[in-house]
């Protein structure tokens, strides 16, 4: 539990996402065991913790890729809908970036980014292409627009994946270990794009092992362990003055020295 007097830098904004007592089970395994967390407008919330602690699961519950067994998830003031059509509409307001990029291999970068606006939001080919070009330029890959994913490096593919999510003009971006599958040289280019996005005021929930990113770019950090949040607070607190044993253990195992 965090101290009531700890300042929350962007806590004044609207609550975009609220997790209340979220429980998720896979058969007999409890992946999430009562998670409480708020994500405010414009905040970058980083979820850290050991593998299997539930961070990615929480993210996948957020856009309904997984359904929860207990608790509530609220998005922009309303509970996540169960109806398929309504859920899809909610998904268009959330952008998700996957660890394995998951670009569509049979489409060019341009087509990948235009696919959402065209097929789902039905904005028409011209508008979809305009957005695609704009987003690809934004992530620094305008010249790669006609290339297929197989011709792109991992870092480039991930940047296209980010552009693809951004083209939907979402209210929040969900990142599921976006750099875990990348070569060290290309991690930087992706983190830079994410940093720029954060500076523009995008609301982001980021599951990551990149502690430096969480420290420098995050506004709020939640430490997961065995399906619960053991500690949450501003990065300064988590990384410099953690209040729980678990957090200290985790950080020391990573060799984190501040």
């Amino acid at each position: 539990m965090t101290s009531a007097t700890v300042e929350r830098a962007k806590g004044a904004g609207a609550k975009i996402i609220r997790y209340r007592g979220v429980i998720k089970r896979f058969g007999s395994f409890t992946a999430l065991n009562g998670v409480d967390l708020d994500v405010h407008a414009g905040e970058v919330v980083c979820l850290i913790g050991p593998s299997g602690s539930g961070k990615s699961t929480l993210l996948r519950c957020t856009n309904g890729l997984e359904t929860i067994e207990g608790g509530d998830i609220e998005f922009e003031g309303a509970l996540l809908p169960k109806d398929d059509r309504a859920l899809r509409a909610v998904r268009t307001r959330m952008g998700m970036v996957f660890q394995s990029f998951e670009l569509f291999p049979h489409l060019t970068a341009q087509q990948n980014v235009a696919e959402g606006p065209r097929t789902v939001q039905k904005v028409g080919q011209a508008e979809a292409d305009r957005r695609a070009s704009a987003m690809l330029a934004k992530v620094g890959l305008a010249d790669k627009a006609p290339n297929f994913p197989s011709a792109l490096s991992g870092g480039q593919q991930q940047r296209v994946a980010i552009a693809r999510a951004l083209a939907m003009e979402p209210d929040v971006m969900l990142f599921d270990e976006p750099t875990s599958a990348l070569d060290p040289e290309t991690i930087g280019e992706v983190l830079n794009v994410m940093k720029a996005l954060a500076e523009e005021g995008m609301t982001m929930v980021v599951v990551t092992h990149e502690m430096t990113f969480a420290r420098r770019v995050g506004d709020w950090v939640a430490v997961f362990d065995a399906g619960r949040i053991v500690e949450q607070g501003p990065p300064a607190q988590i990384f410099e003055a953690p209040t729980t044993e678990r957090t200290r253990d985790f950080l020391s195992h990573l060799g984190w020295s501040g």
Binding site: L65, R88, R91, M96, F98, S100, E102, V120, A161, A165
Partner: peptide, 11 residues
């Protein structure tokens, strides 16, 4: 993952 990426876009 391909299916999930498509669904995440709202398809």
């Amino acid at each position: 993952g391909q299916v999930e990426a498509a669904m995440a876009l709202g398809m």
